[in-house]
Design a protein around this nucleic acid. Sequence first.
RNA 1: GGAGGGGUGGCAGAGCGGUCGAAUGCGGCGGUCUCGAAAACCGUUUCGGGCUUUAGGGUCCGACGGGGGUUCAAAUCCCCCCUCCUCCGCCA
Length: 420
Amino acid sequence: MLDLRLLRAEPERARTELLRRGGADALDRVLELDRNAREMRTHVEAVRAERGRISKEIGQLKRDGRDADAVQAQARALGDELVADEDALRELEAARDDVLLGLPNFADADAPGGGEDDAVTVRVVGTRPDFDFPAKDHLEIGLMLGGIETEQAAKISGARFAYLMGPLVRLQIALVSFAVDLLEERGFTPVVPPVLVREEAMFGTGFFPTDRASIYALADDDLYLVGTSEVPLAGLGYDRILEAGELPLRYAGISTCFRREAGAAGRDTRGIFRVHQFDKVEMFTFTDAEQSSAEHLRILGVQEEILGSLGLHYRVQDIAIGDLGASAARKFDCEAWMPGQDRFREVTSCSNCTDYQARRLNCRIRTDQGPRFVHTLNGTAVAVGRTLIAILETHQRADGSVAVPEALRRYGAPAELAPR
RNA sequence: GGAGGGGUGGCAGAGCGGUCGAAUGCGGCGGUCUCGAAAACCGUUUCGGGCUUUAGGGUCCGACGGGGGUUCAAAUCCCCCCUCCUCCGCCA
């Protein structure tokens, strides 16, 4: 959520910022609703003050044992007047907040302009795998290894679900252990969070109202399945005042993620690239305004360290403004080369949400000048499914076997995966 | 799932229709004393919002888990929800 005071004080700057993000029409609606709401609030508070004054008078009269009927009638009349005005006030403020909640974060000044296709490649790392045999894709390899089963999954869960089996489970476990170890060394506290959350957590992280369609809901229980542990990790700061000295707070969430993938019909239907359920290790940091840009690069650095350790060829993309999520001011994606698709595909993503998410979460720190909103950042450490795809496709051999990166062997993975 | 008891300031804890944004203690901050420190003593110490301001502030409204109700007036009475604790049942 954007700072309403800032929108009032610098509407032209806000307009410029929102135009960068695609449109400023909603700004005018917010400002107008806000003017009306404030006018009504001033009125309501004046009436409340008057009624409060009279009520005290009644108390005094009664204590003195004197008659208060006349004054009491007057107070009652004021109260009746208030009811209608308070309703109107509530409606105005709710309408204003609805629109306000839908406004995206201001983009970072350095974020590239444009949309989905306008990401800027920051760097390309490693060398493209070169095979002297036709490269197989991950599903083909996974089937040969006995590691992926989608047909039965489709029967019992539907499309975009898969069983991960045998050697790929070993690989997942090693991958997660490797990531958690590294993250703990980098100051991230491992967390296994709740994956069912209330609506408040979804609003607090900015997934609601904008991305509601991509979230699974448990209608009978008013709970939602998280699409990323970013949601419950951000929840650690929900409605809380932290001490400035304890920042930065870094967490590494390990969880299953659930996504409806609405709107992705027909895309990436093969294998486990885009599924409704996958496991992920996620970084999340609470920090302050001064350090958030540096923290963003730090998170990106960890991501690259992991991809590098896995021997993957990847590039870092600076995501264009039009392709940022509502909460993000800036976002970098790491895309790994996937020989089976003959192109780079997203395997990690990291966003600096500045104070946008914190304002919604109401997560602040105490400072000499009073409470201030923190800055929040999140980034993928390991999205298991997609990382497995990159590993299988990158390290495949002609006979269908796969060489396992040294980094994972140290965490119990076999040196190579052999076709059955 | 059943029965009972709680949720009040950073923490502990009183208040149970008006003079209560809230006693008291602890902690924090500032000061006195001291070579310095401790102790003691004095002072201070929630958050959000509206209006206003020669920018220091001033003034008013709201908040005692959340929401609704009763009342001229609610931390205090009633209803719903959330949550914590104890006991019983069930369970990985």
